[in-house]
Design a protein around this nucleic acid. Structure first.
Lengths: 206, 206, 206, 206
DNA sequence: TATGAATGAGGATTCATTCAT
DNA sequence: CATGAATGAATCCTCATTCAT
């Protein structure tokens, strides 16, 4: 161990990333001007261009790790048999990855319209779709499919939404995971098409 | 006689809203230039300013109805007793409102970073928070609280996410609602911490 | 008595002038949008164009009377012999005209850069120049000429400046006139070139 | 060697100021578009924004020196005893400052309506008021007060007005100063109301 | 490694003005 | 008399990006 490989480049690159992350979070990607980043760092805008080719490039660099982790998980998932336990494990690992990258999710979610036009957004969508596929059962009912999709969704958006609730972060993460797992599990228990659907919450007029 | 071509009291205002909605959906609010809207309508940018005071004003006008509907629901919720059946009904009505305003949700979700800085975003957040409050039980466990929050969230984000699933829209909506109701209901059944209160009015199913 | 000659036109024209005068005073000519005028009147911008051909035309109409009065004074001055008493009388009449049209002077002074490019500004400058000529003595000393010019100036700008001093308006006007007359008179008393100039206020280094 | 054509640390900032001053004088501040400035310089509008934050900032930069000089004079005035000789000296120094900054006065006077809404205008008004205070005597008669105010005014507006008179500039300046000093002095001599206080230090002339 | 200077494209907004009704 | 609708031209300003040094 010890960073034997990383070239001894100045830490400016890292500092740019740090500040960029902070500002993208606070103001959004589009509304963050490069000048704001450079100002906060005490360098010139031009300096940013020494370290990154474009503004988008800064953004991309922030997502490199998350992309790798998701790819690894997807690869793992593909090697496993298609059974409930595996899917639950998938969800659990997802939960960890998502929470570790929580700030990136904030950016992803809050800047969708913008990122959709960028590689970052497309790549992420593709990966979520791949994960979603791994959770789905072929030929399952609509109810089941919606629930599987929702399970992942809960993790994805919930990661970002439960921050405003009080409580220990790890506890909250587990509670969220529990809810998601519940949805996934119920999708697998054939109980779906009959009772749960129409029984609850449908306006009586229907 | 009768002006067949030039409408006397033109419907331009409505047409602006239509085109704006379309473009905000396709490209995001920020990336949509007023010029694009006016070009598509075959009028001048200045014409937009005859009908709306600012770009934001166009956006706001699109959300007027949704805001009203949510306010009515919140008002209704506040008049009801705090019991599970009411909350389920709340969720069900929410589901209807959200789905009726589906395109607006797309905009809301995809442009969060932008809209957060605008009245539209703040107003909506406030209303969702109010609804969320109506679903919560005092002194409930963390698990229950996370689930209640997630229930609403599922509706909110799910509305936007299930569009890419195949199937009849109304069926999908009901499936989504079913999942959300399940989360809400389970939060209210003793299964979470035993303190969630008497699950009055819930048919002991399963 | 009774306005027998004035055509029975609506009083809108007059009301436009009133509001315009008020707003031109408060905000300046350029910064006052026609929309502000029409809004304050509860009519449409287009309505203004029924009564006046252009924005400038509104302005011009406000200055019509003042122009006439000055022209009359100039004409009178030209008929009189060139002597001190006449000039003093000229100054006194000027003082009355200027003070009666005080608001117009505010506009004239505060919007010079703008009005200079307009007929209103040019016309006024020409008239002041004509008056100034009437006060001047041929072949007089520089000192005398400066003082004569200053005398009129004092009236012109002073009208506008003494408003912030406390005191009865008419008293202030007379005090201002007294100062101006003093300057004019001293220009005529040959006492100028010798004592008053270098004696007071010149830095000792000179 | 040595870049003969492209200056390394370009003097663009100064050139912008020069051109701006010229155009503000010729056309007024408001009517001068930034495009005109940049065109005349052969650069882009954006280049102006590299050197100045806003259009107003260009204007402010032009007035920086004048503001400093006036502040120094005010500070000096406050340290002196309140007597006629001091006030005469004040007027004299004012005269010098005003004439050195003659073009700025043109701008100040010709664009009042505009500048009043800007910091430049307010700051200047404040400074003139401070100077005016230094010239005033407590409890003096209205006549005296009007004259003191007029004295400064004469300098202020006269600076701008005597340019159209023939004659050596410095001579004209002195003549103007003489007139102003006369007004000030007469305000201090018993001739106005007898209460103006002991004319200490004034040689009993004429 | 970085900067100073500049660009080009584009954005929202404002305004006087016009004209059919 | 007056309005509703629209225009065209202009304005200030912002931003990502470039490049010689």
């Amino acid at each position: 161990m010890g960073s034997t490989t990383t070239p001894r480049r100045s830490n400016t690159r890292q500092r740019i990333q740090d500040v960029a992350l902070k500002l993208f979070l606070e103001q959004g990607y589009e509304k963050t001007a490069l000048r704001e980043i450079s100002d906060e760092l005490g360098v010139t805008k031009a300096a940013l261009y020494y370290h990154f080719k474009t503004k988008e490039d800064i953004l991309v660099s922030l997502f490199r790790d998350l992309g790798r982790h998701m790819d690894e998980l997807i690869a793992w998932g593909k090697r496993q048999p298609r059974e409930l336990a595996v899917k639950q494990e998938l969800l659990a690992r997802c939960s960890v990855i998502f929470h570790d990258a929580a700030p990136l999710f904030d950016i992803l979610i809050a800047n969708q319209a913008t990122l959709d036009a960028l590689s970052v957004g497309q790549d992420f969508k593709d990966r979520v779709a791949a994960l979603s596929d791994l959770l789905q059962e072929e030929n399952s009912s609509l109810n089941a499919r919606v629930r599987c999709a929702t399970a992942l969704l809960t993790l994805h958006f919930g990661t970002f939404a439960i921050r405003q609730l009080d409580g220990d972060p790890e506890e909250k993460r587990l509670a969220l995971l529990a809810g998601a797992t519940e949805l996934l599990t119920s999708a697998h228990e054939g109980i779906l098409s009959g009772t749960a659907g129409p029984a609850a919450g449908v306006p009586p007029e229907g």
